[in-house]
């Protein structure tokens, strides 16, 4: 095929320039590094695979395991810096790295606290806003100071809404958690559910910032980066262990969400073309109902093939699902679950 490895002519903004480096990560999904490796067929660019330890809950809590994981990540990051310096022919600007990483960590903290505010009843901020705003933290680019100010403004706005009981969804009847990747092509769908009083108060674990930890005493910026990143996983281990849950990330966070954000139900969105992001959803569905009496509505879809998502059918089922949510609300009340 003549255009393989070329930039498609219709690519937005003229397409991406040919990369000097393919930076992949062994985190969560195998495609992240195997795909970049396979791209070698078309791009004569080196590939670097960043490491992130994937421990089980019990193993992650073993004595010394946390420190070892951080040590490993820091060593890997140091190797990576050396590699970058060689590749680019210039030295790392440590002050700049310090500044950037602090901004990112800070930004994520503000964003985390913003999402904490969504625990309020009525919920002041809806999932649609989450999906519009999460990119700045997850893919930080451009002017970080401006970005940080945006998140601070957002926080202030959401806080104001909480104080004044301004609801994101005017008649908040049901509070829901959504997982995982949304139907980007049909976000309007959430509005239709909002009309029915469905308020999406929290969503997809991997897109939420990690639980903040105090990193001010950590001198080495690489260690700060490592601890901040590993927190996505480790931040849930202790609670997960207490609850006897084994899937510390991907799985357990939804139990915490359901409890702390007081969810009546979950909307799960399995995808064919991103299986890693969603192949745990059956398990999540089971854990939610077993542990917390929170039922799930499963709406299959895709982020590539629009035809796999049927909004009309989902809406029809949503109507029936309301009865299910009502039922489990009673069950939770009887079991003294508190919401």
């Amino acid at each position: 095929m003549k255009d393989l490895g070329e930039i498609p002519p219709e690519a937005p903004m003229g397409g991406m320039p040919k990369p000097v480096l393919l930076m992949s990560a062994g985190s969560l999904c195998d495609a992240r590094y195997k795909w970049f490796q396979a791209l070698g067929r078309y791009l004569d660019a080196p590939v670097w695979v960043l490491e992130l330890p994937h421990l089980g809950v019990k193993e992650g809590l073993m004595e010394g395991a946390y420190d070892q994981a951080i040590r490993f990540m820091v060593e890997e990051l140091r190797e990576f810096v050396g590699f970058l310096e060689k590749l680019l022919g210039k030295k790392m600007d440590w002050d700049k790295l310090e500044d950037i990483s602090n901004d990112i960590i800070d930004m994520n903290r503000i964003w985390y606290e913003t999402n904490e505010l969504r625990k309020a009843r009525p919920c002041p901020m809806h999932s649609r806003d989450f999906w519009t705003c999460m990119t700045g933290c997850l893919y930080p680019a451009g002017d970080l100071k401006a970005l940080k100010k945006m998140y601070q403004d957002l926080y202030d706005e959401v806080k104001y809404r909480v104080e004044n009981k301004i609801a994101a969804c005017p008649n908040e009847k049901y509070r829901l958690v959504f997982a995982e990747l949304p139907p980007w092509h049909s976000l309007k769908f959430f509005d239709r559910l909002a009309e029915r009083g469905w308020s999406f108060v929290v969503e997809s674990w991997a897109y939420h910032p990690p639980k903040p930890i105090d990193l001010s005493q950590v001198k080495d910026p690489l260690e700060r980066i490592a601890k901040f990143t590993y927190q996505w996983f480790a931040g849930y281990f202790e609670e997960s262990e207490k609850q006897g849950e084994q899937m510390g990330y991907f799985g357990y966070p939804y139990l915490e969400y359901a409890r702390d954000w007081q969810c009546d139900g979950a909307l799960l969105h399995p995808l064919l073309s991103c299986r890693t992001a969603t192949n745990h959803l059956m398990y999540v569905q089971d854990r939610l109902i077993q542990k917390s009496n929170v039922p799930s509505l499963v709406a299959s879809g895709d982020i590539v093939d629009l035809t796999l998502f049927d909004p009309e059918d989902t809406l029809r089922r949503a109507e029936a699902f309301e009865e299910t949510m009502d039922h489990y609300k009673e069950v939770r009340k009887k079991e003294g679950l508190g919401w």
Binding site: E51, H54, K58, E59, A69, E76, E79
Partner: peptide, 17 residues
């Protein structure tokens, strides 16, 4: 039950890990 993590690379720090 024990779950062993295996690094994705064979970098030296990965071997240590």
């Amino acid at each position: 039950f024990h779950f062993i993590d295996i690094p994705h690379t064979i970098h030296k720090p990965a071997q240590n890990q």
